[in-house]
Every structure is written in structure tokens, then in C-alpha cells.
Design a protein around this nucleic acid. Sequence first.
DNA 1: GACCTTGATTTGAACGATCAAATCGGTACA
DNA 2: TGTACCGATTTGATCGTTCAAATCAAGGTC
Lengths: 343, 343
Amino acid sequence: MPRSSDRVTIHDVAQRAAVSRQTVSNVLTHPTRVRPETLERVQAAIAELGYQPSSSAQSLRSQRAGAVGVEINTLGPRSHNETMAPFLGSLAMRAAEHGSHMVPFGSPGDRPMVQGYQAMWARRLVDAFIIADTHHGDPRPAWLEENGIPFASFGRVWDDPTFTGWVDVDGAAGTSAAVAHCAELGYRTVGYLGWPSGSVVGDDRRAGWVAGCAGTGVAPGPEASCDQDLDDARAAARRLLADLGPSDAVVCASDILALGLHHELLAAGREPGSEVGVVGFDGSDTALMHHLTTVVQPLDQIADRILDLLDDALSGRARPSAGALLHPVLLRGDSTSARSRSR
Amino acid sequence: MPRSSDRVTIHDVAQRAAVSRQTVSNVLTHPTRVRPETLERVQAAIAELGYQPSSSAQSLRSQRAGAVGVEINTLGPRSHNETMAPFLGSLAMRAAEHGSHMVPFGSPGDRPMVQGYQAMWARRLVDAFIIADTHHGDPRPAWLEENGIPFASFGRVWDDPTFTGWVDVDGAAGTSAAVAHCAELGYRTVGYLGWPSGSVVGDDRRAGWVAGCAGTGVAPGPEASCDQDLDDARAAARRLLADLGPSDAVVCASDILALGLHHELLAAGREPGSEVGVVGFDGSDTALMHHLTTVVQPLDQIADRILDLLDDALSGRARPSAGALLHPVLLRGDSTSARSRSR
DNA sequence: GACCTTGATTTGAACGATCAAATCGGTACA
DNA sequence: TGTACCGATTTGATCGTTCAAATCAAGGTC
């Protein structure tokens, strides 16, 4: 029976098993150091008392918070960032297996500033950070690097090509697979609805479309670009519509853009899929809800790899020689469907 | 200058200001105990060294993790739960002002089990939990209560009316306001698209529709119900369409349902807003994206109140005599618009 | 029988903070 | 002059764990 207080400590277990605290500790961290007979007795005591080491005590002793910070400014309303929320979910689930947990935090302002990071780091609430969506001129990578703070990034860190602690989705492979999918289903041309050139992610995805068309021999269809916004997407889609005949398909840089095109097709009385094929990108809830064919980001895998990177960094292992590019997976929905090639 | 190591501790500050560690501690926690002159000197040292107390050390000493657990199973893909993700965002932002942080976690399975909670609690990674979406037969509230674990709930805890540690949105007030909004704009009847009766949240929202119609004198329009799913919503909306004339409006139990109706209207060539009014509920990104008029849940306020509840519980203050009902706010979008009453 | 070795276990110390009790230098009062 | 008292500050102890060094028991060697 645990002592009067409700909290079971290593001391309670030691007393129960008639050994010293250190032996109990060894049972959990260096089982080989302890005699099999004793091991068993201590393990029994641990089980009976339901002992689990206190994370605060371990943190203090090991100088490790066992936590990783993730900025969630982008998670709030009006952000339209449908990737970060599920990504945080994946991280939280996977973190358990890595013996750590996530601490979401935000800076007051809209723009990602180092202020929030600074606050978390100074108190050592976290051992490392995960950043995402870095852009040109993003102050975070440089600041983290300068201060020797471990971090990993979801998405390439474009400002610093020497930094290899990132995991990213091979956007070109994704759009290329989307084109292949359309070709296979018999669409005659494959157009592209993307973002204005200049964004690295956008250019990457567009490149996959170009390469995909060249590789499969399908004719490139019309192209338009717009911002990551449903209204803009619809406007851009309207511009495309005139050039889209039956059995044409369009690959989009994101699910939001795909949804915009989807809506315009319906508004024009043209059935998505059976008439004009539409493929989105991201595998967002939005796409699933509307049954759009989409290129799904393997968020669980990404989370796992990122946590591996941090494990390595925290145990002083060398950084990998290069970042990791993961392949997205095409998820077939109703917005693309087989058509007879004979028409 | 900080000592050779990179970590600034209370000892470094003490040395720098030529006082003892305890005096430094007092400066931060009991400033009145220290002579003004000394206070200033120590504060200067703190500022110069950029000292912040170590959270692990404080946790161990105070027996408080300073963290709150939030289950995020519902946050993963395919959950269609558009409220939890932004809510977690609000919590994370507000938590900073409450001197704590959020720890999102998940259980392997789909259904909320106590297993995940157990794991977090045993190691004292968190001091309390925030639960949401409790349903009849939910094992969590009872289990938490039994084990004396502090928690608060977003949404009433229906199985235990004596539990008052909850904050909820006044759904009836929301739908009622939605009806009033429609009446004000001149819609002749206001229908309802809701969930099958039996869900407490759903019944609450429906009651507000009924009361709103009675209160404003607007005629109740047709009614239908379906699950929280876009396809189901569209099917239900099709059933409603026949009974919906121009200048009729429909209040919906959620943004997803509203979106379903929105889509069916467009598919039938009837303009949402100008012909048939549509009001959603939740204030989700989906609604904002589609410019739907919607009843917005005040997530920041809810987060604040919930954290207050936990602060009280952790400092041993008595529970409030009743749960808190917060008023949602109607956000006007394009899916409702003024019409001339003269027609 | 004294001495060394090996393996298993225990004791001491430390991580960084804060509470409680002890100390210190002054003042006031008898 | 002694002492009681005060505010300001310091010292000691503690939270629960784990590393490093000390101890202990058993066996082997010369």
C-alpha cells in the first residue's frame, strides 16, 4: 500500500522491495546492472504500486525538459492553414513514442517572431523547436542557429542551404503523380492552377506538373495562378474555364485552389470528374469532405522523421548530410474519374 | 558575464548582485520582503544576465507541472471537427498568461479512453486536463473525478449535473440570434437544418430556433435533420429545397450543414443570400472561407474561462455554483442579405 | 591467511528552485 | 548594560531522480 500521501515515489518502491532508491532507478534505466532475482522483486513492487518516475524530477536531473515547442500562430482562425493543425496532431501522437511531448505556443503578433521562442527557451520549457513554413527572410532559423538552439523544420529552410535538419514533401513528385493519374484515367490535357511564381513550394509543385506532362506525353492544358484563397481561386478558375473542354483535367497547387475550381465547374453546370478532372494538393479535411482527388502529405511520417532529427540533435549526433524528401500519396476521390479513350 | 556554462541560474544572479540565492528568489516572488535598494541591484543583475527561473526546478519544488493536458484525437484528419483545432490554438495562446502551457496528447484508439489520461497523470506531466465533447456514457469525467484529478470541460458534462466545472456556448441563444438576424433582414420564414434529436447540443440549438421564431414572430419554415457530414447535409438540404421559396431562410446546427445547403442551392441555381438565407454555426474556417453568415463561438473567451476554472481548482478554491454559458456572436456573411419587406 | 578481483548494491552529491528557520545588525526600552 | 524586538538577509533542508564513488560479499590466487 502506498504511504499516506497519494504520490508514489521511487522511495516507496525501494522500501516495498527492500532495496535502495538507486537499485529501483537501475531497474528502469540499466536493468543489466541488477541481479535477475532482485530485478523481478523490484519490478513486482513497481507494478503493485503503479510507480512511474516523476517527469519534473527527471527533467531537473537530466537537464532535459523532454518537450518540443511548436508555434501555432498559423493555427488560429482565418489562417486557412489546413496543414498545421493535423500536423500538430501527428506530432503529438508520435512524440509519445519518442519520450517527449509537444508544447504549442504563440507570439502575440501575426508574423512569426523570435519573441515567443525566446520565452520558451529561456525557462527551458523545451529542448528544441519545430518550425514550419519558413519563407525568405524568416528570422527564426538564423536566430535559432545563432543561439545554438536545436530545431528541425517541416519544409526546406531556403535561406540557409547548409542547414539539413529538415523534412519536406516532394511537391514535384506529387504533382507529377497527379498528372500521371490524370493521364491514366484518359484525360486528354492536364492544366495547372497554381500560385504566383516566386514561392519555392509553388514553383516546386508547378515543376512537377511540367515534368509530369513531358514524362507521360499528355498535353499540358491551360494554366492560371492566384493566391491561396477561395475567392481568388474561383476568379482564376473562371479564367481557365473557357479553355477547358470535356476530358480535360487540372492539377492544382492546393486543395483550396482545387475547391475553387470545383465550385466554378458546378456553377457552370459542368460536372467535376466526369467532365473536367480536378486534383488538389495537401490531403486536407476540405478535400476529403468534398471527395476531391488530392495529393496527400504523409504527415505521420513527416512527424516521425522530424522527431528523429531532434533526437539526433539532442544526443549530439551529427546532422544528416541532406534533408529528407518524402513522397506524397495520391488519394483518389470523385473529382477525377475514368473516361473512355475512344471518344 | 555568465559563468562558463551557458545556462544562467539563480546562483549566477546571486553572485553578480552579491546577495544569496534566496534574496534573488524573493525579488521575483516576494518583492516586498527585500529592501528597495537591494531589490534594484538584484533586478539589474537579472536583467543583465537575462535570468529566467528554470521551469523544471520550479516544477519539482512546487510539485506543479504548470501544464494542462488536452486530448487531440479529434484533431486528426477525417474528423471534420473544425472547432477543436482553433480551440487548442486559443488555449495555447491564453495559457501563457495563466503561467502554464498546453500538452496535447492522444490515445491510440479512436474513442476517447482514459488510457492516455492515465499515462500523462501518472508521471505528473500535467496538473489537470481539459476535456471537450463529452457524450452520454463518456468514461472520462467519472474517471477523473474518482481519481481526484482536476479538470474542466468545454461543453456541459451531461452525465453528472453536480459537476459545475464547465464552460459552454449558449447554443439556443446563438440560433435564436440567427433567427432574429433573418427576421431583421426581412426573410419571411426561417427553417432549420439540424442533427437528429437526442444529442444535447443539437437539441439545445434547435430549441433556440423554435424560441427565436416565437419571439420574433417570424414563421417557422421547413425542418430537416442529418448527421454532421457534408454528403448527408446535401441530401437533407435537397429534401428541404422543395419547401423553400424565395425570401425564406434556414438556420443550421453547424457550418458543415450550412455548407451542404449552400451547395445544394447553388446546384439548383438559386443564389444563397439573395434568394434563400443560410446561417451556419461554429464560426469555422470553412464558414469564413465561403463567406457564410455564421454564429461564432467565442473560443478565446471560452479558453480564458476554462483556464480560470483550472486555476481555481488547483489553488483549492471552491467550484463555482454553476457552469458558465457564454454568448456566441453572429458574424454576417454573404449567405444572408437584406431584402425589401414590400414584396 | 592476506590480497586482489568482480559483481551487486548502497551512500553521497547534485540538478535549480523555494519554504522554513536561523542569523545578523540596529533600535528601543527597561 | 542587558535584552527584547524588528526588518533584511542568509543558511539548511527539501522536492524526486540519477550519476559517480564507496561499500560489501563472495570467490580466486599465491
